[in-house]
Structures are given as structure tokens and as C-alpha cells.
Design a protein around this nucleic acid. Structure first.
Lengths: 215, 215
DNA sequence: CAGATAAATGAATGATTGTTCATTCATTGC
DNA sequence: GCAATGAATGAACAATCATTCATTTATCTG
């Protein structure tokens, strides 16, 4: 969305207010990925953005404000991604489900830098209600849609023995866990392998709808 | 192991060197869970332990040293737990696998406080090689055992279509993801529900070895 | 019980970090 | 071209935090 504005306006003193904010948010993401959230300071962010110290408090009232807006930005981007993926995908329930699962492993979303950000904030949800609220919003919509599609498939395929709630939880948990693998041990896990792992799960559960090595 | 020592020796100036270290590590775990890693200071740790400021640098050379020892402690405890679980469980491959999976959801290991610690450190592995090394050691042993058992079951049951690597990755990812649910949204997920979710996965994969509602 | 030893304290210190603000500089409208 | 506007700077300030250490306190020894 506003990435277009941000990219063209790196020249100083020219960028619009919104573009600067985006630039600082991107710098925050880079800093969190590079140094971790604990060692991300206003100075490291400003340095990543090639801007001066005072800039953060100029555009966001405080460091905390910047951190919250950064999470909001990544969360919004994620929501946009899966909503767009559903709109683009074929109409069948199986196609919709596959599209939804695949979003988690597409390059735009499944970027090690952004994954580092997700885990940084997740790890502090217990102490920061604001983080939790923003993260919960992310999951609410996604999980609801995932649950819908799983239920539809179960009905369609007369998979009587399957429990929709378990499958929904299991599937979204598997995605998150594979993200963790990508973050902690990127040599042992790749986006493609992660995607295949989820697909394997779908093939096992819904053999009438998903078959190995298709797509 | 040394928790026995630590618990009995809370009285001041009496505790042995090792007991004090354990006490401080426990306080660190509490502090990380309460305030997050970013807001865990030497002061918050000392306060959780009801001890004075200087105590951390007395027993560990630095704050960083304490943080590393805390991770090591949680990781060791985890390793002890699953090794003990394997030793206690029945001898069949299915029983061993089930025991290994269940460890992740037993009260001793699957405690929201400790989960907060895991995610706090995982989120910083990208910037702190020491954290990564300690975390990787945790996974190496567990995943190797998990992989062994999965392969054994596939051979035993002539589940020709199953890919052992995908299943191993998927299973451990699902565990980690369910932990995340327990951390972020404890009302929507419980240890028991998480365990059942993993079990559902096993039932689907290995119908000859696992059947619903057993255990 | 006295002296020695070791552990713990907490105020002081120095380094780091978030925030402020007077100044600089580019852009826009007249 | 010339004010006027407001975005950006970066040095200065204030607050926080890790670390140090002289002192206090408990335990052990002979």
C-alpha cells in the first residue's frame, strides 16, 4: 500500500509525513531482526533509517509509540496478504483453504526479518496488553476463516471422524511452529519445505481434496 | 534436580552458593514472564528473589551471564523431562512416541511462565549466537529421537505413503505452535486441548498404532 | 567466645538510552 | 527572490540501569 510512497522518498526533508513514518517502521523491523527487541534503541532505529536521533519522537510521540505502530503495520500487512490471497484463489473450499495456508509461506509474509518481529512481540504479550490485543486481532480473522473452510471440507467430504476445532488449531499451530524453525534454524528449514509439511497434513486429513505433489 | 536445594533455603545468608544461583534463575524466569525480557533488569530479578541489587554480579559475573544460565537451566530441565519420560514409558515405538509428544504438555514443562522464557530467547536467537546454540542443542536431541520413532512406526505399520521428515517437522512445529497459543491466548487453549490436538494428528497418520480417545 | 571467613547489602558510579529543544535547512506561496 | 512554514538535526538533559565496592552480617573454627 504505502510502500510505494516510502521507497521513492528517501531523499531528506522531502518525504511526506506518512512516508517518514513508514520509513521509520521499516527501520524498526530491521533493527529488531538485527539486534533483537531488547537491544533495539532509538539510536539503532535512526541509524537503520539514516536519520537523526530526534526523528522518532517527532513522528511518534515516544519509542513505545513507534514499537506499537510497527506491530500494527506488520499485522495489517499480514491481514491484507491473506485477504488478497483468498480473493485471488479459486472458488472451491479446497482451493480457498490451500491459498490461506500458503500465504504463511509466501515470500512477502514469510520473511525472516518479519518473523523475527512477530516472535519478538509474541514473547512479550504476557506483559504488554497492547501487544496481545494487536496479535489477537491478527489471529481472530485468520482462524475464523480457517475454521470455516475446515468445517466446509469436512461436510463436503463426509470425513465424519474429523474434529474441526482440533484441525484448525493444529494447522495454525503448525504454521507458527514452522515459522519458528525458519527463524531459529534457517538452514534446516525452508519456506518450500515448510509449505510441503503443511500440505502433507492436508493430504492426510482430506485425501479426497488434496493429493500429494499437486501444485 | 537442584530445585530441592533451592526451595528449602530461602532464609538469608544460609543458602549455599548453588542454591542462591538457582534462586536467582527462578527469579529471572518469573521476571521474564511478568515484565518481558526487554524490561527485565537486575533490579526486577533481585526484587523477585527478595534480595539486593548487587547479588546478581556476585553469583554470575554479569546480567548477561545470568540470562545465559537461565536459558541453560530451562533447556536442561526440558531435556531431563523427556529423557525421563522415555525411560518410564512402555517399550513399544508407539508408546515411546506418545510419551515424547506428551512431555510437551505435562505441567512441569508446559508452564506458561517457562513458555514465556522459551519464546523470549527464541525471538533473539537471530542476534545472539549463544542463545541459538543453547536452543539448537535442545532441539537436536529431541528431534533426533522423534525422527527415529516416526521412522520406526512407518516401517512397522507399512505406511508407505508417509514421509518421515515431514511428519517429524510437522509434529514438533505443532507442539511449538500450541505453546504459542498457550502463551498468547491461554483462555482459548489449554494443555489438555493441545495434547489432544497432537494426538489427533498421530491418529490420522498412524491409525494402526493410535486410536481416538485412548488414554 | 573471639577471630576468621564468606555472603549479602545498598549506596555510589559510570555508561547507556529516551526525550527535549534551540537551531538549521529545504520547500512553498506571495 | 523573499519571507514563512515546518521538517530534520544533534547536542544537551534527565532517567534508567548494570556494575562496583566499602561495609554489615551471619556462619564457621579453634
Amino acid at each position: 500500500m504505502s510502500a510505494v510512497i516510502a521507497s521513492s522518498a528517501t531523499s531528506k526533508r522531502t518525504a511526506s509525513k506518512e512516508a517518514r513514518r513508514q520509513q521509520l517502521i521499516q527501520a524498526t523491523i530491521q533493527s529488531i531482526a538485527k539486534f533483537g527487541l531488547s537491544d533495539t534503541t532509538v539510536a539503532t532505529v535512526a541509524s537503520e533509517a539514516n536519520l537523526s536521533q530526534g526523528i522518532v519522537n517527532l513522528h511518534f510521540q515516544s519509542k513505545q509509540g513507534l514499537l506499537i505502530e510497527t506491530l500494527r503495520s506488520v499485522a495489517d500487512e499480514y491481514k491484507d496478504a491473506w485477504e488478497k490471497a483468498l480473493a485471488t484463489a479459486g472458488p472451491s473450499h479446497a482451493e480457498q483453504l490451500e491459498a490461506l495456508v500458503n500465504v504463511d509461506f509466501c515470500p512477502a509474509v514469510c520473511d525472516r526479518t518479519k518473523i523475527a518481529v512477530w516472535f519478538a512481540y509474541w514473547s512479550e504479550t504476557k506483559s504488554r496488553p497492547t501487544y496481545r490485543k494487536l496479535c489477537a486481532e491478527r489471529d481472530r480473522g485468520y482462524d475464523r476463516k480457517l475454521s470455516e473452510l475446515v468445517k466446509a471440507l469436512i461436510e463436503e467430504g463426509k470425513y465424519q471422524s474429523l474434529d474441526a476445532d482440533s484441525i484448525t488449531s493444529g494447522l495454525s499451530a503448525m504454521s507458527a511452529g514452522l515459522w519458528l524453525d525458519l527463524l531459529v534454524d534457517p538452514r534446516g528449514m525452508s519456506r518450500e519445505r515448510a509449505r510441503q509439511t503443511c500440505r502433507m497434513f492436508l493430504c492426510q486429513l482430506f485425501p479426497q481434496h488434496f493429493t500429494p505433489h499437486a501444485n
